[in-house]
Amino acid sequence: MHELSVANEIINIASQYLPDNSGRVKIIKLKIGTLSNILVDSLIYCYEAAVKNTLLHDSTLVIERAPIIINCKNCLEEILLDVIDNVCPNCGSIDIEVTGGDEMQIVEIELYDKPEE
């Protein structure tokens, strides 16, 4: 639901990496966790709307989904999951801690080779 706020933050951060007035951002690579409550299609839609009339107008988001990571306190395994069922898939314990999967990170920014003529 807050994908527009997130899109605006991405624009704010990525704008800081424009080398000068002629530099242009081509791709912004994001890592979005499965538990982040972000709908990827909606984020792309909001980004495309928000980025118009900014220096990033011809940039594209590339989104990598980050898996859920749980640490089981019973069998001491660290397990990566796409879907969480609130029990350890290894031993069935409910004594698990979710240690990853809610990240929203800008991983890297790729610039166009040549400035626009």
């Binding site: 951060i13 994001l30 929203m104 790729e110």
Partner: peptide
């Protein structure tokens, strides 16, 4: 091709 690795949290300003 110029790639800048930044690894910044999207909501870092709020944090």
């Amino acid at each position: 091709m110029s790639i800048i690795t930044i690894e910044r949290k999207v909501l870092e300003k709020n944090d």
